[in-house]
C-alpha cells in the first residue's frame, strides 16, 4: 500500500480538525509522520472536508477490539489497514468473526465499547479512507 499526495493532504486536513498534535502511521512499506506546526497555529485545510467511513457490525455479537488471548488492540487509532484486514472481532457464542475494513484506510477511532453486545449495522470503527 502507498499513500498518494491527496491522501496526505486529506490526512493533514483531518489532523487539523482534531486535538492531536501529531499523527504517525505505519503499514507495510509505509511510514508517515504528520506534525502540527506550533508556529502556524493551525493547518489550513487544502482539500475538501473529510468523510470518515464507518465500519459496521456484520452481525449481532459481542464487540472485541482485541483478540481475547491478546492485550493489544487489533487496530488502534492510527493503524493503516488494507481492505479486508480485520480491525476488530465479533464474538458469537464459540465463534469469532472478523470485523474487516471495507476499504483501505487509517483507523480514526474505535466507536464501540469492548465487550458490548452490538446489533447488525452498529458502527464499530471509524476509518479514514486512503487511495489504494
Amino acid at each position: 500500500m502507498t499513500l498518494s499526495a491527496p491522501d496526505i493532504a486529506r490526512l493533514s486536513a483531518w489532523l487539523a480538525e482534531t486535538d492531536l498534535a501529531e499523527l504517525e502511521l505505519r503499514g507495510p512499506g509505509c511510514h508517515l509522520r504528520l506534525r502540527l506546526r506550533q508556529d502556524a497555529g493551525h493547518v489550513t485545510p487544502i482539500a475538501e472536508p473529510v468523510t470518515l467511513h464507518s465500519v459496521t457490525s456484520p452481525s449481532v455479537g459481542v464487540f472485541l477490539p482485541a483478540h481475547p488471548l491478546h492485550d493489544t488492540l487489533l487496530a488502534p487509532a492510527g493503524t493503516l489497514v488494507e481492505a479486508g484486514q480485520p480491525v476488530a472481532l465479533l464474538r458469537i457464542g464459540a465463534l469469532l468473526l472478523p470485523v474487516t475494513a471495507p476499504v483501505p484506510g487509517i483507523v480514526a477511532e474505535i466507536l464501540a465499547t469492548s465487550g458490548a453486545t452490538v446489533g447488525y449495522g452498529t458502527p464499530l470503527v471509524a476509518l479514514h479512507p486512503v487511495a489504494e
Partner: peptide, 11 residues
C-alpha cells in the same frame, strides 16, 4: 476461512 474460535480456556 478467515474466522476463528473462542479459546475454551477462556470460555
Amino acid at each position: 476461512t478467515g474466522f476463528g474460535a473462542m479459546p475454551p480456556a477462556l470460555a
